[in-house]
Simulated scan of single mutants.
Amino acid sequence: MEEEINNRIQCDWNNWRKVSGVICDRKVPIRLKGRVHKAVVRPAMTYGLEAAPLKKTEGKKLNVTEMRILRWMSGVTKKDKVRNEHIRGTAKVTDASKKVQEERLRFVWPPDEKRRATHGKRSNVRGGGWNTKERKT
């Protein structure tokens, strides 16, 4: 699993390098940089981890990598003593480990209000499927 985490982190940095012209530009607003990060960089890191069991140390490794990228993106160093929460708040980005956990929950059990509301009827959700409550007719 350690190799897979390191591979995901490497993919994260590779995608960051691809868009570093936009992300590191001081003229681009930080919120737009955050959106680019969420759309391009983070999916490379979280891809395939929704089915993998993560240890706390591995989740921390993902968070550290993401914070390094966010600090670089916002032009803030550790010497500036700006808290991580402030940087995440300005870019509107959450923890990578929390995102992986959300993806895992979505992967394992998709909470779908439409499916629950049908009460046994064929769901109109993509992929179909039957509700767990069956109606007697």
Rank of each mutant, 00 (worst) to 15 (best):
G128H: 05
H119E: 10
I87R: 05
I5Q: 01
N7D: 12
H86G: 01
P111N: 15
D25P: 05
P111G: 10
K92D: 15
W13V: 08
K98A: 12
D112P: 02
W72M: 13
G128Q: 05
R106H: 12
L62I: 05
A44L: 04
L62D: 00
N15F: 09
L49C: 05
S20E: 10
V93N: 03
V40T: 07
L54P: 00
E58T: 03
G89P: 04
G75W: 03
P53E: 08
H119V: 09
R126Q: 12
R17D: 09
R122Y: 08
H86D: 14
K60M: 13
R35Q: 14
K121I: 09
S20M: 06
T77D: 09
K92I: 14
R68S: 11
R83M: 08
K38P: 03
E4G: 03
R8P: 03
M45G: 06
V108A: 14
R42V: 04
R126I: 14
M1F: 14
W13H: 07
K61A: 06
V125H: 11
R68F: 06
W16D: 00
L49N: 00
R115I: 07
I69K: 01
C11A: 15
E113R: 15
M73N: 04
D12A: 13
P43C: 03
K33H: 05
I30R: 11
L105H: 12
F107I: 10
V125G: 09
V28A: 11
E2Y: 15
L62C: 04
I9R: 06
G127E: 09
P43S: 07
V41I: 10
I9D: 01
A51L: 10
Q101R: 15
D80S: 07
W109C: 14
I69V: 12
I5T: 03
R35H: 13
N84M: 08
K136R: 15
V41W: 00
P110A: 08
E113Q: 14
K114Y: 04
M45R: 04
V36W: 02
K92W: 13
K27H: 13
N84L: 04
S97K: 06
P29N: 10
S20A: 08
R104C: 07
I30C: 09
R68H: 12
N14D: 14
A51I: 14
K81A: 13
V36S: 04
E103T: 03
D12K: 07
V19N: 00
K60F: 13
V100D: 01
G128R: 07
R8C: 05
V82K: 05
V28Q: 07
V41Q: 00
R17M: 06
I30S: 08
V125S: 12
T118A: 09
D12H: 11
I30E: 10
Q101N: 13
I23D: 01
K81T: 12
Q101V: 09
T77M: 10
